[in-house]
Amino acid sequence: MARPINLRIWRGNKNGGDFHTVTVDANEGEVVLDVIHRVQATQLPDLAVRWNCKAGKCGSCSMEINGKPRLACMTRMNTFAEGETITVTPLRAFPVIRDLVTDVSFNYKKAMEIPSYAPPANLKPGEARMEQIDVERSQEFRKCIECFLCQDTCHVIRDHEENKKSFAGPRFFIRIAELDMHPLDTLRNRKRTAQESHGLGMCNITKCCTEVCPEHIRITDNAIIPMKERVVDVKYDPVRWLGSKIRKREDIS
C-alpha cells in the first residue's frame, strides 16, 4: 500500500544550491532510489542522480540519506518512521557536479598511485598456484564495489580537504593490504610506502569506514590495523628490525 512521504532533496551545483522538499508516494518494499526515481518521473524531471544496477553491486547510487553515507538502492523505505522527512544529499567529501551527483575522480587518481600486483618474474601465465587459505584473507577485500562510501565518511579527508593529497583513504588501504598479504606478490616496500606515501599513519582507526561499508568488509580490523602492525614491524619495532637484518629478510613467508 502506498504512503506519502516527505523527501528533502539537495539540488544545486558547485556554485550553490538548496533543499527542495517534495511529497511523494512510497510503495511497500521500495527503497530510497525507487522514490527518487518517482520524484524524477513525476515532479523534478531534471533531477540528477547516478545509478546503475539497483542491486547494491555497482556502487553508483552512493549518497547521504539523513546524513549517513548510504547506497540509495539498499536503503529500504520501511526503515523510516511514519511522517519522517527524509533528507537526501550528495556525498559531502567530494566536489558536487549537480544535485546528487558528485565528482569521485579523486579516488581514481589515488588508485593509480598504488603499485599493482607484482608476480615473480619467472612466473608464466597460468602457472600461478596458491592455497585457498593463503588467499582467503585478501578475498574479503575483493568484495569492494567501489561505492566510495568509506572514502566519503573518513574524517581525514571529509573534514580536511588539505589531506587529500597525502591520504589514500580506506578503500585503498584495503587494496594495499590485499597486495601485501598476497602470497605471490614480490613488491617488498608496500608497508613503508603505505605509511610514507599513502598516509596510513593519518588514520586514527575510528572505524567509520567499516560502519558504512555496504559489503560489510571489516576494513579497520582486517586491513588497516593489520597494515599498521606490519608498518610497526618494519619502522617502529627495533627488535623486529634487528631480526630482519640478521635474517636478511623483511617478510615472513
Binding site: 558547485k14 566536489p95 571529509r158 573534514d159 588539505e162
Partner: peptide, 11 residues
C-alpha cells in the same frame, strides 16, 4: 575546510 570546502555541496 572540510564539508564546507570549495566545490562541495553548499550545506
Amino acid at each position: 575546510a572540510g564539508v564546507h570546502a570549495e566545490h562541495r555541496a553548499h550545506i
